[in-house]
Design a protein around this nucleic acid. Structure first.
Length: 463
DNA sequence: TGAAATGTTGGGGCG
DNA sequence: ACGCCCCAACATTTC
C-alpha cells in the first residue's frame, strides 16, 4: 500500500482539512511542509510571520502526532521538493488545499501535470475560502468590484459545514525520507530576539485559535459593532493570524457564529466577507501588492513615490524618508499613530481602526506611497497575507477596487478623541506621552491635508 | 470604516 | 409684540 502525501501550506490545521481527510481516507498519510523562498513570484515571509510559522509548525506537528501522522519539513523550490519527496517516499497520491496567487497556482499546476504523468493520484480542495473566486461573478460574468453587491450575492450562497478531525491510526509507519530540523530554518529572531512581546500576546496553533474563537463568540461578539472600533478595549476578535495561517478555517468561524442574526454578528460575518473579497481581488489581480488597481493612481504625484517609478515631487515633503522612519518607529508626534506603531512593533498586531488611522496618515499627511506602508506591515504583522494586506492598503490609499475615496482623510487627533476618549490606549503604548521626551508633531495636519487634496486634484487633471 | 466648509434653523437676549 | 442679532445645533455640500 502506497502512502498519500498531504502537502500543508496556508492551512496548518487538522480539523476541517479536506486534503488531510482525503489522504487519511486513502490509507496511510504523510504530512509535508515546504519552506519555499525560491520559487519566482512567491513573496518571502516577513519577520513576524516567520516567528508565527515556527510556532505554528511546532503545534501542527503535535496535532499530527496525536493522529500518528508524521510531518516532513523540507526547504527549497516547492515544485522540485514535492516531486522529489513523493518519488523517494514512493507515494501513491498527493493532496493539497488550494491557494490563489498566480505564482503559487503555477507551482501547483506544474505538480498536477507531473503527478498525472508519474501515475500518482492528485487532487486539490477548497479550504481557505468560503467561495472559490472563479465561482463568484456578476450577472454579466465579470468580477465584483464593489463589496456590497459582492457580499449580498456571496452571503446568500450555501457552503459546507466544517469537517471533523480524522480518526487516528492512518499514519504512515514505513521508512521516511529525510526531514529538516525546524530549528535549522532559523525562523526565530536572534540577536536581538525581539519576539518577547509577540509571545506575551499570542499562542500560535490551531488549539489556541479554537480557544480564542470560542471566547470571542461567548464574550465579544454581541458587542462587536461597538467594540471593534475601540482600541482602548478588547473588542477585536484577534482571530486574524489564525485565519491567515489556516489554523482556523473560515468555515469553522462561520459555523461558530451559529444562527445568530444580531447586528454585531452580521458585522463580524461581513469582516469574513472582506477577507474573501480581498482574496478574490488578489486572484484577479496577482500584482495587487505593486500595481494600483485604479491605473489613474499611477500618475499620483507622491512626495515619496516608493519603488514603482511613479514620478513627481510635492512641495513640503522633502524630508519624507526621515518621516517614514518616524512613522515606522512611532515618533510622529501624533499619539494615535505612534501608539499603533508601538503596539505593532511589540505584539505583531495593530488594532484595525488604528491601522486605518496610521495608514491614512502615511499616505495622505506624509505623502508617502502606500507600497512602503504595505511592506512595513508585511514585515511586522503576524496576520499579513498576500491578499488582505495590499488590498487594504489600496483601500486606504484610494487606489483599490472598492476603495475609500481619496478625500476621506482621517484626522488622527479627532480619531483619538472619538475612539480613545479616556486615553487608555495611548497610556498603554506611549509611556512617554506628555513628557518632554515625546516628539513634536512632524507635520501640520491642516496644510498636509490641503497638499494631499491638491495632489489628488493634479492627478485627476492630467489627461 | 471622514472631516471641514458652508448652509439652515430656531431659541434667547435685547432694544 | 416685534425685529434684529448672535450663535449653537444640526444638515448639506464639498473635498
Amino acid at each position: 500500500m502506497k502512502p498519500s502525501i498531504v502537502w500543508f501550506r496556508d492551512d496548518l490545521r487538522v480539523a476541517d482539512n479536506p486534503a488531510l481527510r482525503a489522504a487519511v481516507d486513502d490509507g496511510e498519510a504523510v504530512a509535508l511542509f515546504v519552506l519555499d523562498e525560491e520559487s519566482p513570484g512567491i513573496r518571502p515571509h516577513g519577520g513576524a510571520a516567520r516567528w508565527w510559522l515556527h510556532h505554528s509548525l511546532t503545534a501542527l506537528r503535535e496535532d499530527l502526532e496525536k493522529l500518528g501522522i508524521p510531518l516532513l519539513l523540507r526547504r527549497g523550490p516547492a515544485g522540485d521538493i514535492v516531486q522529489k519527496t513523493a518519488t523517494t517516499l514512493g507515494a501513491g497520491a498527493l493532496y493539497w488545499n488550494r491557494r490563489y496567487g498566480a505564482a503559487e497556482r503555477a507551482v501547483d499546476a506544474g505538480l498536477k501535470t507531473w503527478a498525472a504523468e508519474a501515475g500518482l493520484q492528485v487532487a486539490s480542495f477548497q479550504a481557505s475560502l468560503l467561495h472559490e473566486p472563479w465561482n463568484v461573478t456578476t450577472k454579466t460574468g465579470g468580477q465584483y468590484k464593489v463589496f456590497t453587491p459582492f457580499w449580498r450575492t456571496v452571503s446568500a450562497q450555501e457552503f459546507r459545514d466544517p469537517l471533523a478531525v480524522p480518526a487516528k491510526g492512518h499514519g504512515f509507519t514505513g521508512k521516511l525520507p529525510a526531514s529538516d530540523l525546524l530549528d535549522s530554518w532559523q525562523l526565530l529572531p536572534t540577536s536581538p530576539d525581539w519576539s518577547g512581546g509577540l509571545a506575551e500576546m499570542w499562542t500560535p496553533g490551531s488549539a489556541a485559535g479554537h480557544k480564542r474563537l470560542a471566547a470571542f463568540v461567548a464574550d465579544g461578539l454581541d458587542n462587536y459593532s461597538e467594540g471593534r472600533n475601540r482600541p482602548d478595549t478588547d473588542g477585536s476578535s484577534c482571530l486574524s493570524p489564525y485565519l491567515r495561517w489556516g489554523e482556523l478555517s473560515p468555515f469553522e468561524v462561520w459555523h461558530a457564529l451559529g444562527s445568530r442574526r444580531s447586528e454585531s454578528a452580521s458585522i463580524y460575518a461581513s469582516e469574513l466577507g472582506w477577507r474573501e473579497f480581498c482574496w478574490h481581488q488578489y486572484f484577479h489581480n496577482p500584482e495587487i501588492a505593486t500595481a494600483n488597481l485604479r491605473p489613474e493612481f499611477d500618475r499620483f504625484p507622491w512626495a515619496w513615490p516608493g519603488t514603482n517609478g511613479v514620478k513627481g515631487k510635492h512641495p513640503g515633503h522633502e524630508s519624507a524618508p526621515e518621516e517614514f522612519r518616524a512613522w515606522q518607529q512611532g515618533r510622529t508626534g501624533f499619539p494615535m499613530v505612534d501608539a499603533g506603531q508601538r503596539q505593532l512593533w511589540h505584539t505583531g498586531w495593530m488594532h484595525n481602526r488604528v491601522r486605518m488611522v496610521a495608514a491614512s496618515f502615511l499616505v495622505k499627511n506624509l505623502g508617502i506611497h502606500w507600497q512602503l506602508g504595505e511592506q512595513w506591515f508585511w514585515d511586522t504583522l503576524v496576520d499579513a497575507d498576500p491578499a488582505s494586506n495590499p488590498a487594504n492598503w489600496q483601500w486606504v490609499a484610494g487606489s483599490g477596487a472598492d476603495a475609500s475615496p481619496f478625500f476621506r482623510i482621517f484626522n488622527p487627533e479627532a480619531q483619538r478623541t472619538r475612539f480613545d476618549p479616556a486615553g487608555k490606549y495611548i497610556a498603554r503604548w506611549l509611556p512617554d506621552f506628555g513628557t518632554p521626551e515625546y516628539p513634536e508633531e512632524i507635520v501640520d495636519l491642516k496644510t498636509t491635508r490641503a497638499e494631499a487634496l491638491e495632489a489628488y486634484k493634479e492627478m485627476k487633471e492630467v489627461h
